[in-house]
Simulated scan of single mutants.
Amino acid sequence: MTLVQTQPRPASANPVHRTVVEVMDAAGPRVCDDMSVEVALAVMAAAGTGRLVVCDQDDQRTGLVTQAELAAVRDSSAYTDRLRLRDILSTPGILALSR
């Protein structure tokens, strides 16, 4: 008989049992919700990622935005250079422009 030693797997090794916080942390860099769409797109390009975790002033996660969503918003008629990530996440329908 051969003895086999096993070691417990970390919770993050099984994606089914990951928490929302773990998923959002793995989703991409964290940015503040007062960041403009253009700056957010530049951060994504520099980080080589397609999504950002958006946090409020208290560093609480408020949402997740993707490069495709931000590009669609930037190219829409609703876009202005004053548009912030918090505006995109809090305005019903604005992200629907990207779908």
Rank of each mutant, 00 (worst) to 15 (best):
D58W: 15
L97Q: 03
V53D: 12
G93I: 05
V53S: 14
C55R: 05
S36H: 09
G93P: 08
Q60R: 15
D25N: 13
S90C: 08
T49Q: 14
T6H: 04
I94N: 03
T2V: 13
T91I: 12
S36N: 05
V16K: 15
Q67L: 10
A71Q: 13
R86K: 07
M24A: 04
D34L: 10
G63C: 13
L89K: 00
G63K: 09
R74Q: 12
L41W: 04
G48E: 02
E69T: 03
A45F: 02
T91W: 06
L89N: 02
A11W: 00
R9Q: 02
L85P: 00
T62V: 10
V21K: 13
V31C: 07
Q7C: 01
T66W: 04
E38S: 14
A68M: 00
A45G: 05
M24K: 00
P29R: 13
S77M: 12
R30M: 08
T6S: 00
C55T: 12
L3W: 03
A78V: 14
P92M: 02
D59R: 11
G63Y: 08
Q57R: 11
E69K: 00
Q67S: 05
S98K: 03
V31M: 03
Q5P: 10
T49H: 06
V43D: 07
C55H: 04
R30W: 09
R18D: 14
G63P: 09
V21L: 14
D25F: 14
L97M: 04
A68C: 01
V54D: 02
T62L: 02
S90P: 00
V54S: 01
G63V: 14
V21R: 13
D58K: 12
A26H: 11
R51T: 05
V73A: 08
G50M: 11
G63W: 11
E38T: 12
P15R: 15
A71E: 06
H17I: 09
S36P: 02
T49A: 06
M35N: 07
C55D: 02
T66R: 06
D33V: 08
T19D: 07
L41I: 07
D87I: 08
D33S: 14
S12L: 10
L95F: 04
E22G: 08
D59G: 02
L89C: 00
S36M: 03
Q5G: 12
D33T: 07
A71R: 15
S90G: 06
A72F: 05
R86E: 00
A11S: 09
A71N: 10
A78C: 10
L70A: 05
A13Y: 15
Q67Y: 06
M24V: 08
L83I: 15
S90Y: 03
T66A: 05
E38K: 08
A40C: 02
Q7R: 14
